[in-house]
Write a protein that binds this DNA or RNA. Structure first.
Length: 506
RNA sequence: GGCCCGUUCGUCUAGGGGUUAGGACGCGUCCCUUUCACGGACGAAACACGGGUUCGAUUCCCGUACGGGCUACCA
């Protein structure tokens, strides 16, 4: 029988979760939901020196905002495999048990080398023109460890509490094969793998040991992670093997990376594309740096995850705008690409625009009201709702609305020079003053009727240039449909604006 | 440098031994329009290169180039 699908997202709380991490979480989530399985959040906080305050909370909040909610784990209600924080699991002695088992089986050993000694070893190897200096089956023989020291000596050192690590004893020359769901078979020779540290001198496990122990204990069925883990996968295979768990290990799937838009390297915390790299605002109190989030930039979480899902995956047909349910339904690892995908800021904006257009005017107004308030703009809901109807076609984000239509809230003080230079002449003042008077006599102030009034005025006064009227009333050359705009602003306001504009014109 | 992974329009991608190599973003032109948009139509734009295998290769194999990842008592 197939194992129940149980996958985990296991970030380390070393900073804000950036969008590459969000995508890894998303793919795990999609796979779990597709198969009716479990999605777990585990916190890999084994590096105490890199722990950042607030990072864990950020991760939880970011996943919540994205709608990528674990059904088990830190911040989402503990489950049967608690605790889900590795620091807490370490306190329970979980990892040491496995490390001891490896040592007892002759597959791991104690190493007492100091940082200086390790440094010296690397320098020595470099000087000897060794291509890849590492702690391995060859170099370990020149170091101070339980393979080179006598049993008595080792015991003495351990009893004296000498700082030491536990390392994996990787064989000298052995072919390691493993299957990746996305990439197929991968073969690496063990000579390329170093003797990885399993237990650090502070007693904490490294990622390599910890994730294996936890994946086994938590009955994880698939380890889905970024491609940056591919090179260490052979070492992981060895650990499972030496633990006698090779048949119980999760299936592996290494996701392609998200690359920078300009093409060089994987996405970093900061990018010049102008779009955020983080789901939510993030302030790093260590460095004092802050980063804007997708949420605060006016993105919808549906748009964000839709975009992310299509970066490296596709449903096999031409669909692009998909609900989360549709994505889940269509999701398979077979349709995940092998190659890295460059992040495309333009298309990302387009995704949000598509979702923006799906909202009705009442929903948009409800979203816009607090933004207006924060800008100190007072406007009533009815006005704002109509404003949304007019302006939404031009926007990608709700928080562009105000800037795109400031003149709906503040009368213009200046007027587009280009349009005036091209279209305003010595007769204009007389013509548009007459138009102003005609409008002033008009009581049926609707878009439709204003359209008729303009046509009649054009016939009577000579051509009324609609763009000129637009500039007189709004100050700018572009904007929503003119008559809708006049209708919304209202007769009183339009009169005021025309009077002011005409007083400024020659 | 070494090891691993990858390579279809500028970008995200579909496809796959014989196709006019399809879609989307962006870009351009036109239509609609007395303004501004939306919208519609059309267009430019890709199989990295070299060898095989084959009647035939963009598709399979091998090299090369290029790109990416890893190379810590970080994850």
């Amino acid at each position: 029988m197939e194992k129940r699908v149980r996958v985990r997202f296991a970030p380390s709380p070393t900073g804000g979760l950036h969008m590459g991490g969000v995508r890894t979480a998303l793919f795990n989530y999609l796979f779990a939901k597709k198969h009716g399985g479990d999605f777990i959040l585990r916190i890999e906080d084994t590096d105490q020196t890199r722990y950042v305050n607030g990072a864990e909370e950020y991760i939880v909040n970011a996943l919540k905002w994205c709608g990528i909610e674990p059904n088990e784990g830190v911040g989402f209600g503990d489950g049967p495999h608690k605790p889900y924080r590795q620091s807490e699991r370490k306190a329970l002695g979980i990892y040491k048990k496995y490390a001891d088992q490896l040592i007892a089986g002759g597959h791991a050993y104690y190493a007492f080398d100091t940082e200086e000694e390790l440094d010296a070893m690397r320098k020595r190897l470099e000087a000897a023109k060794v291509v890849a200096p590492q702690y391995n089956s060859v170099s370990r023989q020149t170091m101070r460890n339980s393979l080179t020291l006598s049993e008595d000596e080792v015991k003495k050192l351990l009893d004296a509490g000498t700082p030491h690590v536990v390392r994996l004893k990787v064989p000298r020359n052995e072919e390691i094969r493993f299957h990746d769901i996305i990439r197929g078979w991968v073969v690496v020779n063990s000579s390329q793998v170093d003797d990885k540290v399993l237990l650090k001198s502070d007693g904490m496990p490294t990622y390599h040991l910890a994730h294996i122990v936890d994946d086994i204990e938590m009955q994880i069925s698939h380890a889905v992670r970024g491609e940056e883990w591919l090179p260490s996968a052979p070492a992981h295979i060895l650990i499972y093997r030496y633990l006698g768990l090779e048949n119980d290990m999760p299936k592996l799937a290494h996701l392609p990376l998200i690359l920078r838009p300009d093409g060089q390297g994987k996405l970093s915390k900061r990018d010049k594309s102008g779009l955020p790299m983080f789901p939510l605002n993030w302030f790093d109190e260590r460095t004092g740096e802050s980063y804007v989030g997708y949420r605060e930039s006016g993105f919808y979480p549906e748009a964000f995850i839709n975009m992310l899902a299509l970066l490296g995956w596709n449903p096999g047909d031409n669909r692009e705008i998909m609900t989360k349910a549709e994505i889940i339904e269509a999701f398979t690892f077979e349709r995940v690409n092998k190659s890295g995908a460059k992040f495309d800021p333009e298309k990302t904006k387009w995704f949000n625009q598509q979702y923006l257009r799906q909202r009705n005017d009442n929903e948009l107004a409800a979203e816009l009201m607090p933004i207006l308030e924060s800008k100190g703009v007072k406007a009533d809901l009815k006005f704002v709702t109509e404003f949304c109807r007019l302006i939404k076609e031009k926007a990608h984000f709700i928080n562009e609305f105000y800037d795109l239509g400031v003149y709906f809230f503040t009368a213009p003080a200046s007027f587009d020079e280009k349009v005036l230079a091209k279209k305003w002449n010595e007769n204009s003042k007389a013509t548009y003053s007459k138009l102003r008077d005609k409008l002033n006599g008009e009581n049926n102030w609707t878009a439709d009727n204003l359209h008729h009034v303009f046509e009649a005025a054009s016939a009577e006064l000579g051509k009324i240039d609609m763009q000129l009227v637009r500039v007189l009333v709004s100050g700018v050359a572009g904007g929503p449909q003119l008559f809708d705009m006049l209708a919304l602003l209202g007769k009183e306001e339009i009169m005021k604006r025309l009077d002011y504009a005409l007083s400024q014109m020659k």
